[in-house]
Design a protein around this nucleic acid. Structure first.
Lengths: 255, 255
DNA sequence: CGGTGCTTTGACATCGCTCAACGACGGTGG
DNA sequence: CCACCGTCGTTGAGCGATGTCAAAGCACCG
């Protein structure tokens, strides 16, 4: 398989390293994993409801979403994934898709066949644990989303999602200062937060007016981290990142 | 450790069997796992936010909830667990609790030290996979809850939760006919569904008036499965149960 | 320059929340 | 045995956050 992209498995190794410490043997095994790299256009389904995937995917570039489609045409976006994420690890053990996975933007994705991954994980229990942990962190994100949808008002929900997306991207080096990419459009943010795009738009206006964030051209800039986390009641514990005190803290108080 | 309760690990073996097929070696290993069985009163915290548990628990009897506590005193119930569930498997790999786990009713719980479980899972990759799968199903429940909170109205949310709780209990033999225990009070159902107990009460009235369910004395009786699933837009795929076409189907059409 | 898709805004409707009171029930102590 | 009390369920009236519908602005692109 052509390795058109630079070192996909190294990105995975780095990602897992940020989560558990990898031994050399595991790291080497990972780097040798056979895989295919594909360039996909925006809005391209990777796996659909009720399918039985036989490979896992690793996002190398771009954004991917997981979403449920309701009968009335509504959809609920369940999560966003960025570079370094493995959105369908679950397919290793859950044989039928209970939702859909699709690119949000044009994206570069590496595909790793289950048949390659499974024996590797069996030989390297620590690697299996690292991936298991990754899926558990995914679940932690879900829990936080449930809390948002269940008990936070629109303003808090949006603020909370922004905090989450910023910190997750910071962890993989996708931020510059207090700015980060924000690929989802307003209607997609709305679909993720259980809101209407109309109402989401009004909430964004409020966030801008209060000088908590700036948002334009697919770039989110945090203007007041402390105020934003306060509105969101944001506690980074659920991210289970190594150093939970974000580098933002200093950056948020510019000289 | 005293084995006051009959065969706790056998319940676990049976549960896992319902999910993956266990080989004899795994089954035997499971049955020998050291553990402690405790009787806990209702509303007793099992693990609190930010703690670092060193054991996993297995519900043998009663109900357990996972919940997030917000600063204003609100709480969001994230999930309900019944006999056979292992609510904090995640603590094996996620070291800090990002939420709370507590009994809802008086309950009998078996505790298995991480230090016993970890080496066992290392020796039996299939067992590890079975438990991994269990945590992935947990995540599937979260996803469905997100969809409910984000895109369903109150009536659909309640109906959906009832369908889920019925089928999950049916899978472990806790139902009789079309009835099953329903331990959570109205305020707890409301906390799980992002509603007020007042509004939940009104929704229950509607469900009763429409003859979809009957509800009293902690027992839920489904009176019209087809209508209930229709209101809920319920699709059992996300439960990832062995035989997804529920036995309810026949029972729902009494002679 | 005329689409086409996204954002923004306004007017109005509604679902679910808040506050407040009352009723049903079971436990407890006198 | 009964009065009392706490908890839970039920109901009403009014309000507020968010949805709905509709149209206009705006940027990018052929």
């Amino acid at each position: 398989m052509p390795n058109g992209y630079n070192a996909p498995m190294e990105m995975l190794a780095r990602k897992l390293d940020s989560v558990t410490r990898l031994a050399d043997a595991e790291r080497a095994a990972l780097l040798n994993l056979p895989h295919t790299v594909r360039n996909l256009p925006a809005r391209h389904d990777i796996a659909r409801f009720s399918e039985r995937p036989n490979q896992c995917c690793l996002v190398l570039q771009g954004w991917v979403t997981r979403y449920a489609a309701l009968t009335d045409g509504d959809r609920q976006i369940l999560s966003f994934y960025v570079a370094g994420d493995m959105p369908d690890l679950q397919s290793l053990h859950l044989h039928h898709m209970d939702h859909n996975l699709a690119t949000l933007t044009a994206a570069v994705i590496a595909f790793i066949p289950h048949d390659e991954l499974r024996p590797l994980l069996r030989r390297h229990p620590d690697l299996a644990s690292a991936l298991w942990r990754d899926t558990l962190i995914d679940a932690a994100h879900y829990r936080e989303r449930i809390t948002s949808l269940g008990r936070r008002q629109a303003l808090g929900r949006v603020a909370h999602l922004f905090c989450e997306l910023f910190l997750r991207q910071q962890a993989v080096g996708l931020t510059t200062g207090l700015s980060c990419p924000l690929a989802p459009k307003q209607s997609e943010l709305a679909d993720a937060l259980g809101l209407t795009s109309v109402h989401l738009n009004r909430v964004l206006r409020t966030l801008r007016q209060r000088k908590l964030v700036a948002l334009s051209g697919g770039v989110l800039t945090i203007e007041d981290w402390d105020a934003l986390t306060a509105v969101a009641e944001f506690d980074p514990t659920f991210l289970h990142q190594r150093n939970n005190e974000p580098a933002v803290r200093e950056a948020a108080v510019p000289a």
